[in-house]
Write a protein that binds this DNA or RNA. Sequence first.
DNA 1: TCCAAAGCAAGAGCACTGCTCTCATTTCGG
DNA 2: CCGAAATGAGAGCAGTGCTCTTGCTTTGGA
Lengths: 249, 249
Amino acid sequence: MTTSRSTPPGARATQGARARARQEVTAAIKDEARRQLAADGAAKLSLRAVARELGMVSSALYRYFPSRDDLLTALIIDAYDSLGAAAEEADAAFRAIGEAGEAGEGPTPARRWVTVCQAVRAWALEHPHEYALIYGSPVPGYTAPATTVPAASRVGLLLIAILREAYEGKGVALPPLTPGVRAEADRIAADLAPDLPPEVMTALVAAWAQLYGLVGFEVFGQFNKVVEDRAAFFTHAATGLAHGVGLVK
Amino acid sequence: MTTSRSTPPGARATQGARARARQEVTAAIKDEARRQLAADGAAKLSLRAVARELGMVSSALYRYFPSRDDLLTALIIDAYDSLGAAAEEADAAFRAIGEAGEAGEGPTPARRWVTVCQAVRAWALEHPHEYALIYGSPVPGYTAPATTVPAASRVGLLLIAILREAYEGKGVALPPLTPGVRAEADRIAADLAPDLPPEVMTALVAAWAQLYGLVGFEVFGQFNKVVEDRAAFFTHAATGLAHGVGLVK
DNA sequence: TCCAAAGCAAGAGCACTGCTCTCATTTCGG
DNA sequence: CCGAAATGAGAGCAGTGCTCTTGCTTTGGA
């Protein structure tokens, strides 16, 4: 993480054999770590095992990641980015095919919403241990450094963008707020999207958390023996979430 | 866990000094383990440290819990029970004070729902690491044994009971199901509560997961810098969940 | 061009972990 | 009362994260 580059900022595009080698080794370490993560989960990720697999001695690995937690943080950022990219790609693809399709099947905000939710679910099912890393219980006493914030925000920003499109097209309707949350709702809206109504933004934050509740329950096996056709159930629930944030079309 | 009692089932109420001592030691181990769990989280829970704190040698501890995972499983069951009890007590207390109160403030199903949700949230905030143990990412490769099922179901059963009361009082209304989930909804209802309409039971399962999404996001710090007045926000969201399962009064 | 400085790999070592095995002691039941 | 079962203690194995020292290699500036 600490990119303490001794070379001045104006380094050439060809940045020296050493720096290139460093990047390659760093990438190799992350790749192998991701492999072990996917295989056995975060708790069994071992620096020594990673080093062993890469044919290097364990102490050498500390030149690249000063601690196990730093390696995990790097993997967390990558996971957030991977999830965000998956959601954005699914949305873009849906909009592309939608515009070329029939009139009655266009990419309405509500359908975009469900599409993004489904993309999140699909990514989580494909990468359960990485999902656990970012949305499961955090490592004990570990609070994610600020570095993770941009990557972590991608899905949220995408959901806000969908709501914004709907709002501009008058496609969002929600009952007024009760007095108890009025102030907090104003705060939330002012922070995240001042151009959108507070009741919508508050519902968005709640729906955001609820989405990860749904996905988490499925990924972590809480739906075992309860829900069978999980895809159908999820689509139904995601549609309910869309209604919950006021998406009516 | 393996209660391989050599004493016949008809053992006396005074069940021997040895058996009593065993129970006490077992309880002491769990207590100390819970202490360490609350202090440092599940990943840092160490059998040796527990034994050390109890003044016994680590190998002796294996006479009581054959492995670290078994100790964790015992803690998981206790946590589920503690959470379930907290929810049930909150509900019972609310109904008790409600019946004695004014007419317009009675314990309607919707208000019972919110009360139970708040109890779950409160318990989770008081026992974050135990919450992480049961609703965070499961221990890698670890699937909860069937032993945990009854304890884990308590909150769910309570929510079903609330819906049933509402349904009998005609206090539940929900739009019809879309064809896509019809079959799965029928299955879910048949499994969990055949006397309640499928659309209600399906919404209940979704709301159940969504509730833990809301609680998890708060406990795990995902609401940092996003939601300030979390109690007000949660009450608002829980009320939304109540509407989502069709509780109208 | 040369050399000091920085980067790097390797190995040894510390303190810790879960878990197993053996051996002595205590306790209980037939 | 005595054998069997339960329990505790200790040593030991394999593994972990992490640190420190020791040399070697690359690099960038004088």
